[in-house]
Amino acid sequence: MEISASMVKELREKTGAGMMDCKKALQETEGDMEKAIDLLREKGLAKAAKKSDRVASEGLVDMCISEDGTKAAIVEVNSETDFVAKNAEFKTFVSDVAGMVLSSNVATVEELLASNFAGSAETVQETLNSKIATIGENMNIRRFAKFEGQGTRTVGYIHGAGKIGVLVELKTDASAAEVAEVGKDVAMQIAAMNPKYISRNDVDQEYLEHEKQILTQQALNEGKPAEIVEKMVVGRLNKQINEVCVLEQSFVKNPDVTIAKYIDAEAKKLGKSIELVNMVRFEVGEGIEKKSEDFAEEVAKQLKK
């Protein structure tokens, strides 16, 4: 039976499910609208769609690192509430997703969602929809990153039971065990201080010019003489660069040394070079605008349903 656009539109309006999911359901049920609705409900797609406009700004960050430290993946999966983020089923799902990213060649979230879920005939998206229907909250896989360099070791750190996750990639001839401690220290520094860059060489010119303009205007507003403003700005800009570049930051555990000097000292102890070449820091919900609704209004909405 030919499935018309109007049939797909009608099913979408009745269930709130996606266009392709509606078309597929109608094809499987040979155009029977009621059976298609039941099919979407059984798969959790109708329920998932109805929850899709609800903000998911809580959740977990998790990671998976190969035993030798040569490969690593980090993911952020969001839920609506912190309560669900502590749910064992949710935690297992996030862990499984991290393992999938590590073992697959997916490059985008869309590719990940379309791939088969670990040990299942269902796609990751279908499995996620089932979780949404079962747990009762909107959830989504927001982002992931993967390290797979040559001659590198990756070390990870999870803070706050999954609220912040950091991976650091170190170029070294040392084994994963040999750089585990220094890698964790650097990852903890990044978790705490949230630097934008690794070193001064990574700072882009646009950022420098922008900050220079702001600092110059600040100095002028303070009434400083124009002839010394430039020198002041150079000093203040250098201080700011030290704050946004992890290698220039004072080591939290020992403020007398920078992270760069700490890494160098550890490399000398080990007798092998260690260079921080990559980092990624995920914090749950960062950048997501959270809805703030009045509780009484929310109850009223529920009563009207």
Rank of each mutant, 00 (worst) to 15 (best):
G16W: 08
K91N: 08
A161G: 12
V244R: 03
S52N: 10
C22D: 01
L220N: 00
V55T: 04
S130K: 15
T92V: 07
D68I: 14
T15D: 05
L112M: 08
E58C: 01
K35E: 05
R54W: 02
Q27Y: 06
Y157Q: 09
A98E: 10
K50F: 09
D256K: 12
N194E: 11
V8M: 01
M33W: 00
T92Q: 15
K35Q: 14
S130A: 15
A73F: 07
L11M: 02
F83L: 00
L208A: 04
G18I: 05
I132Y: 05
K146M: 02
A180C: 10
Q125S: 15
I37F: 06
G160E: 09
E13K: 04
L247I: 02
V155W: 00
G99R: 12
M19Y: 11
G119F: 09
V75F: 06
Y157M: 03
R200A: 14
S52P: 11
A85Y: 05
T123C: 10
K231P: 02
E111R: 07
L220M: 09
P195E: 08
K261I: 13
S57M: 04
E181Y: 08
R142M: 08
T15M: 11
T123D: 08
I164W: 01
K14V: 12
K50G: 10
L128M: 13
S104Y: 03
S199G: 13
V124P: 00
K163E: 13
L39D: 03
F90V: 10
A161K: 12
I74N: 02
D32S: 11
A17M: 12
E2Q: 09
G223W: 11
E243A: 14
T15H: 07
D32P: 13
K86P: 04
V166H: 02
E58A: 14
L128Q: 07
N78Q: 12
E67N: 05
K231N: 04
S79I: 10
Q125G: 13
S6Y: 12
E248H: 08
I65G: 02
A56N: 05
M19T: 09
N140F: 09
G99L: 06
I190H: 00
V168C: 12
A187P: 01
S199W: 01
L102K: 01
V106H: 12
Y157D: 06
G165A: 01
A174C: 13
K224T: 08
R281H: 11
K301G: 12
N78V: 10
D256Y: 03
E148M: 09
F147M: 03
Q249I: 08
L237R: 04
V94Y: 00
E206L: 08
L112I: 06
V234E: 15
L112Y: 00
A25Y: 05
A114C: 02
K14R: 15
G165P: 03
V280L: 10
I132P: 09
V257W: 09
A161W: 04
E230A: 14
K272T: 03
T127V: 02
G223C: 06
N254V: 03
R236M: 11
